[in-house]
Amino acid sequence: MSFLTRRLTTTTPRLLGASRAFSASARRDIAKITLIGNLAATPEVRATSSGKELVEYAVASSDGPRDNRHTSWFRVATFVEEGPRRDYLTSLPKGTTVFVEGDASMHSYVDAEGKNRSSMRIYQKSLEVLRRGNPSE
């Protein structure tokens, strides 16, 4: 028997056996999203119902040719403690091009007219400024 044959016959049962757990924590389904777009307005600090503050902003991302362009709007939120990081984020002007990575979640609700609606909320994990907007706009 050759070395290769012995190697395959001794390792194959382990490869076909039970899978090995690589994590001690339970599986968690998540939806990740990556956006590149422009800020619709300067990010704003808002208080939650529990009193914790978060920074909210909207990102516009467009695709298609100029004469048939479609723009998608994404609402983004992040929990940033008071300090230089929050000050920097809230100083970004409308039109700033950003690269955002985050977790996405869908929410269903009934609007004031009784219609079923759904919306996607993105919780920012990281943000990178690609080009600053013009603060005079």
Rank of each mutant, 00 (worst) to 15 (best):
D29N: 07
S19A: 13
N38M: 03
V80P: 10
R6H: 07
Y109C: 01
V129F: 12
P84C: 09
R20P: 00
A41Y: 14
P135L: 12
A40W: 10
V59P: 14
I36A: 04
A40G: 15
S126T: 10
A40P: 02
S72L: 03
R28Y: 06
L130N: 07
R20V: 14
A41Q: 15
S50H: 04
K94T: 14
T34D: 12
H107R: 12
R132P: 00
V110R: 03
E81I: 00
V98G: 12
G102D: 03
R28T: 11
I122H: 10
Q124A: 13
R131F: 07
L4Q: 11
I122F: 09
M1R: 00
T9C: 02
R117E: 15
L8I: 07
L16Y: 05
D103M: 11
S61E: 13
Y123W: 08
D103H: 09
F74M: 07
V129W: 11
V45D: 06
S49N: 12
G95N: 03
P65H: 03
D67Y: 04
S118D: 11
G102V: 02
S126L: 02
R28E: 14
F74C: 07
T97M: 14
G133Y: 13
Y88V: 06
P84Y: 05
T71F: 07
V100N: 09
E53K: 14
S105V: 08
A18P: 08
P65R: 10
A41G: 13
L92Q: 11
I122N: 09
A26D: 13
S108C: 01
T34Y: 11
T96P: 08
K125T: 05
E53F: 10
V129Y: 09
A77Q: 07
R85A: 15
R6A: 13
Q124L: 13
K115G: 01
R121P: 00
G133F: 09
R66M: 06
F99Q: 05
S49E: 12
K52T: 11
S91I: 07
T5E: 14
V45E: 12
G133K: 06
E56H: 01
S2R: 00
G64T: 01
T42W: 08
F3A: 05
R66T: 08
P13F: 04
P135T: 07
P13E: 08
E128L: 13
R7M: 13
P65G: 03
